[in-house]
Computed example of a mutant assay.
Amino acid sequence: MQSRHLTSDAASERSGTGHSAGIGEAPRSNEASGTDPGRRELLLYPAYGPVEAVLGFVMFYVVVDHMTPVVVSALAGPLPGFVPEPATTVAAIFLWFILGLSLFGMAQDQLRENPRRFASRAQREEFLAQNRPTRSSYAYHLVVLVVGGLTAALAWETFLEVLEALMLVPVEGTGLLSPAVGPVEIAIFVVFTVTFAAFSRAADRLAIGALRDVGYRVSRR
């Protein structure tokens, strides 16, 4: 009688042990699959735009720096009390204002969707793989960078000449462009504007795309 009771207790203990082991194994299975519902994978992912914004501000600074003495010289006759001060001060304040807007815009773009959250590491790696630049994207933007940069460099001097003529129209009050500025010069002015914008965008896509590619490769290790 006692023997049967011990046997029954032993069987019950073995059954309870097996049940406990089954409960203990479940978290290990979830951890191995990377689908722990309480865990979130975070990712700081660079957004496109900062390189393009920086190049745009640099170009704006160069243009303002070049045009300020031209405008100051033109205003010396009709508005002698306005030049060189406060005209140069206004130009400097304007530059700082544009810089602040550029920095605010860049920060807003980067923070809008960062950090990104994923339910598992597998989802995070899938996102990195789908959004990395392709070889054709690298090739396309590299061609645009070279062609756009060379074209903009060739059109730079004419661009400044036309810009000076445009800026002097309201100052001189004639309402007419300089006779030296014709349809060809206007066309070159437009070409510079378009090609520099394409150059800046391509440089941004190459630089930020390379960062995204690095993030993908690091995640695969």
Rank of each mutant, 00 (worst) to 15 (best):
S136M: 07
A10R: 08
W96V: 08
V144Q: 01
F94Y: 04
R217Y: 07
L128Q: 15
L206M: 02
R221Q: 14
Y45H: 04
R40M: 14
Y140W: 15
V181D: 01
P179E: 05
T88H: 14
F60M: 06
F57E: 01
L145E: 10
E172M: 10
E185W: 01
A202L: 00
S137E: 06
S102I: 00
P86M: 02
N114K: 07
N30H: 06
Y140C: 14
A165C: 00
S136G: 10
L44T: 13
Y45R: 02
L42A: 06
G16L: 09
D9N: 12
V184H: 09
G148D: 06
G149M: 13
S20Y: 03
D9S: 13
T134F: 08
R201A: 03
A210K: 11
G77C: 10
F60N: 09
S219D: 09
R201G: 02
V181G: 00
G148M: 08
I98P: 00
N30M: 15
V62I: 14
T7R: 15
T68A: 07
F127L: 14
L163A: 06
A207G: 00
I98L: 01
N114Q: 12
W96K: 07
R124G: 15
R132F: 04
V162Q: 04
V83L: 04
A203T: 13
L6H: 09
V169S: 14
A47E: 11
T17M: 15
V70G: 04
G38D: 13
Q110A: 11
R39I: 06
D204K: 02
G77N: 12
E172A: 11
S136C: 06
A198H: 07
L111H: 13
E31T: 14
V90A: 06
V144M: 01
P27G: 13
E185A: 02
P50H: 09
V144R: 02
E157H: 09
V147C: 04
L176A: 03
T151H: 00
A107T: 05
G209D: 05
S200M: 08
V169Y: 13
H5W: 06
L163E: 02
R117I: 15
F104I: 01
L111N: 15
M167F: 03
R212Y: 05
L160E: 11
A91T: 03
S137N: 03
S219L: 05
E126F: 13
V72S: 12
